[in-house]
Design a protein around this nucleic acid. Structure first.
Lengths: 210, 210
DNA sequence: TGGTCATTGTAACCATTGTTACATTCATTG
DNA sequence: CAATGAATGTAACAATGGTTACAATGACCA
C-alpha cells in the first residue's frame, strides 16, 4: 500500500501525512462493474484512488441514469467527501470502470487532517475544484451539445480512462450512461462509423481520432 | 455592516470571526441586473451575501446561457471560492437578481481562517456541499425533465427567491435562462395558463401553485 | 396624438430524439 | 449441430423542441 500511495500521492502529501494514511486508511479493491457506493448509502469514509478507474452516476426517481464523470488515480470523489462532512447520504452511485484499488479514509481523520496539514487542505480544496469543474463540463455537455457530439466525447473519455482505443461496451450500456435509448445510440454510432471516426464490432468499438 | 452580518451569519460564526470579517471584508452593493462577476474575471475575493439575491449563469463559446442556481442571504458561491483558492479565472457569471448587498472577503483571509476557525471551515465545506447539491439538481433538471416542467420549476424558484408571486420578467429573459427560444417559452407559458397554474400579463407573470 | 419599439400570440414547418417493431448476426451451450 | 439469447441493424412513426414569419398589442416618447 505504501508504495502505491507514494506513486499516486507522494508529490502532494508530506511524509508524516502519508504515514498517517497508511496507519488509518483501509485498502480496498473492486472488480470491474462492482458498485463501490450506491445512492442513499450512508457514507462514513472517502476513497483515495490508487489504481483503476471509477465512474460516477446520477439516477432520478424513475431509475433513469446519467454518467457524471470518471475518476482516476490520484482522484477522490468530492461528492462523497461532501456527504461525509455533511453527514448525509450518497447522492450518486460509484461503479468500478475497471479493476480498481483505493484507500478508504474515515471521516474523523478527514476533519482532523484538514486542520493539521496544509497539503491535505489543499488536496481537499483542489478535489472540490476539479469536481465542480467536471460537473460544469457535464452541464455544458447535456445543455449545449447534441447527442452525436455527446456520444463522440463519451467514447473519447472512455478510451482515455481505459487507456485503450478498443472499448468493450455494448450500445445498450452507452445508452444508459448518456440517458437515451439503444436505438438512438446504434443510429449515431453507425453515422460515426461512416464518418470514419470509429469502427464497430460486436461488443467492441475502436475509437480513432483521439 | 455589523448588524446585517450578525443577522445573516451570527448563528454560524463566533464573535471573534465576525469581528475579523468586519475588519477585513469590503461591503459592496449591486443593482438589479448588474453583473457582479463575469466569466474569465480573475477572482481574488469571495462574497458573503447579506441581502438580496444573485443568479449564477453558465455560458458556452457561442454565447448560449444557462441558469445554474440562485444565491440568497447567508450563501456564498462555492464556484467563486473554488476559483479563489485555485487561482483560476471565473467559470461563471453572477448577476444581481434584485438589489443586493454583500461582503467581499480577500483570498488570503479565506485560507487563514480555514486553518484557524472551525466554524469557518464548516461554513466553507457546507457551502461546497450545498452548491454541489444544487448543481446535481440542475443536472437532474436538464437531463431528466421536459421543458414544461423545467419552466414551471423555474417560475417557482424565481418566485421564492424574489419573495413574490408576481414576476417581472419577459418571455425572452426566461428563454435565455433556460437556454431555449422565446417562441417555445411563450407556447409553454400559454399552456400553463390554460392549466390555471399561472396568469400572464405584459412584463409580468403571476405564479400560483407554490 | 401618432409613431416607434418592445413584447406577446400563433401558425407552419423542420430537426432531433424517442418508440415500436422486427430482422439479422453471432456466441454459447446442451 | 441446433437452439437459445444477447447484440446489432434498420424502417416507420411519434413527440418534443427549435425556427421563421408575421400579426397584434401595449407602453412610451416626441
Amino acid at each position: 500500500m505504501l508504495q502505491e500511495l507514494k506513486e499516486a500521492y507522494g508529490f502532494l502529501f508530506e511524509e508524516e501525512l502519508i504515514k498517517e494514511i497508511v496507519e488509518t486508511g483501509v485498502l480496498k479493491t473492486a472488480k470491474e462493474g462492482e458498485i463501490i457506493m450506491d445512492i442513499n448509502d450512508y457514507i462514513t469514509s472517502m476513497p483515495l484512488l490508487l489504481e483503476g478507474a471509477i465512474k460516477v452516476l446520477r439516477e432520478d426517481k424513475e431509475g433513469n441514469e446519467l454518467l457524471l464523470y470518471f475518476l482516476e488515480r490520484g482522484d477522490t470523489c468530492a461528492l462523497t467527501l461532501s456527504c461525509c462532512l455533511g453527514q448525509t447520504r450518497s447522492e450518486i452511485r460509484a461503479v468500478a470502470e475497471r479493476n480498481t484499488s483505493f484507500i478508504m479514509i474515515p471521516v474523523s481523520k478527514i476533519e482532523e487532517w484538514t486542520a493539521r496539514y496544509k497539503s491535505w487542505r489543499n488536496f481537499v480544496f483542489e478535489s472540490y475544484h476539479s469536481r465542480l469543474t467536471e460537473m460544469l463540463e457535464t452541464i455544458d455537455t447535456i445543455a449545449f451539445m447534441n447527442m452525436d457530439e455527446r456520444l463522440l466525447r463519451y467514447l473519447q473519455d472512455k478510451a482515455k480512462i481505459n487507456q485503450s482505443e478498443a472499448l468493450q461496451v455494448t450500445h445498450q450500456q452507452i445508452a444508459y450512461d448518456l440517458h437515451t435509448s439503444r436505438v438512438v445510440i446504434s443510429r449515431l454510432l453507425k453515422k460515426l462509423e461512416i464518418e470514419k471516426k470509429i469502427q464497430l464490432q460486436r461488443n467492441q468499438i475502436m475509437v480513432h481520432d483521439l
